[in-house]
Amino acid sequence: MLKDMQRAWKKHLCEGDDTDLAPYLENDSLNSKERLSVYQNAYWVRLVNTLIHDFPLLALEMGNNTFKEMAAAYLKTHEPSGFSLHHLGEHLPRYLSAQLKENHPLVEMAHLERMIHLIRLADNQPILSMSHIKERLAQGEPLLLKIHASVRFFSGQYNTLERWQAFSEQCLRPKLETLSERKHHVLWRGNNHQVNAWLVNDETHHDLSALVTGKSLQEWCDSSSETLSLDAAINRLVNKVFLWAEKGLLVDER
């Protein structure tokens, strides 16, 4: 009975259909359509505003009304579940790409803004400093190096990242441009909680991607030594580790 009543509420809130809910309610002015609409309005406003908050530049680019229409349609196919609103926009980039095209600039923006959201929420791990590495090495203590939990990769064919940075830092909106070639960026959260970006080449992109997707430094070194001598592979690893540590991409899990 309680479950049926709650399902009737769901039908009202999600579909605007109160036929199942009406029998549960007092039959007087207290339960007028206006009162029920308070709940329905609050439901949609809260969810759509959450998406506007999580995809601010996408909402601006699409225009407020178009974004709201898209968001409402998205929420009908991806109903909010779980206790956290942080998951609400999880499928929005993919939803948008099905509506538009995978390589549409708005889809790229949606992917980037979702990524930024996840970077901001990533675990708070202390970023490894160069002085910490030197201290450990001087003491002959081992390091257990991992990539910081906030590290993500963004590959774009438009100037989406530059536009997002200009918007979030200075409220500017540079014109959309198509890049001559796809660019890869490493994005991560720094000590000051700013989102940092580093333009990387294919090789660095490949190396870091492997580590982010779970490969250990040992495995990475082993695979490098298939094409290089062991010494050369180790040298290469050390150089890279120092560079990544300087950037603030590493943590010491010991």
């Binding site: 809260r46 109903e79 909010p80 609103l85």
Partner: peptide
């Protein structure tokens, strides 16, 4: 209050019926 059912969440505070049964629940 309650906020959702069947895994769906309204993210709103929705009223409970006030009966002996819901009280015990």
């Amino acid at each position: 209050c309650w906020t959702g059912v069947d895994g769906w969440s309204s993210h709103d505070l929705l009223p409970m019926p006030r009966t002996e049964k819901t009280l015990a629940y």
